[in-house]
Amino acid sequence: MSSSAPTAVHHVHRDDYGSRMGMWLFLFTELVLFGGLFIVYSVYRFTHQQEFHIAAQELNTTIGLINTIILLTSSMTAAMSITAMQKGNVRFAKGLVWVTIMFAFAFMVNKYFEWSAKIHHGIYPGSKELLNKPEGEILYFGLYYVMTGLHALHVIVGVVFFLFILRHIGQGKVHQTQYVRLENAALYWHLVDLIWIFLFPLFYLIH
């Protein structure tokens, strides 16, 4: 087949409602992705109740609590940035997005210290210390690393998403009457928050 003939201009169809719908559908896949992990978690917690309780003692509730507050607050600033954009206050909107990114950064720093403390204590996948523990605890920490790790990965993706939005704001692609991308980035960020809302009690609060 030859394609040497002229080029057609592909017309761009703007549909904010459709974009949001697509974003929501994408969020469902993310939810179910974590859902799979929650299924694994619930089954093992059901079959190894005692060991999960004991293992959970090792986690630092305070760090978990601080991270919860950080994420809730960042969720608020992300939501506010849309209001600012709707009101035409572009600089304030940008500022709020930056604040959100800073919170994400703080979350990651916290996470870093939390994980390093664990690893320092010899609790990491494949470590001798961990392998000597009962099966339920190995599973607990396996899930702990996988679930909080995957969540942290989503935090990073959220930040990248926001950085793109900031660029788009700078380029004028996102503005007072065209802000669906900002909305979608914020939706993604709220999803990250939502998942943490469940991770926090399930890992840190089962004493």
Binding site: W24, P201, L202
Partner: peptide
């Protein structure tokens, strides 16, 4: 713990994520 977490997510979904102001289809989807 799960009840409280669900309540929290209800707030996040409805207000932060604007579900309350979206079309009925979105609610059906979720």
């Amino acid at each position: 713990a799960l009840l409280i977490a669900s309540t929290k997510s209800w707030f996040v979904l409805n207000y932060f994520m604007h579900l309350k102001y979206e079309d009925r289809v979105f609610k059906l989807f979720i």
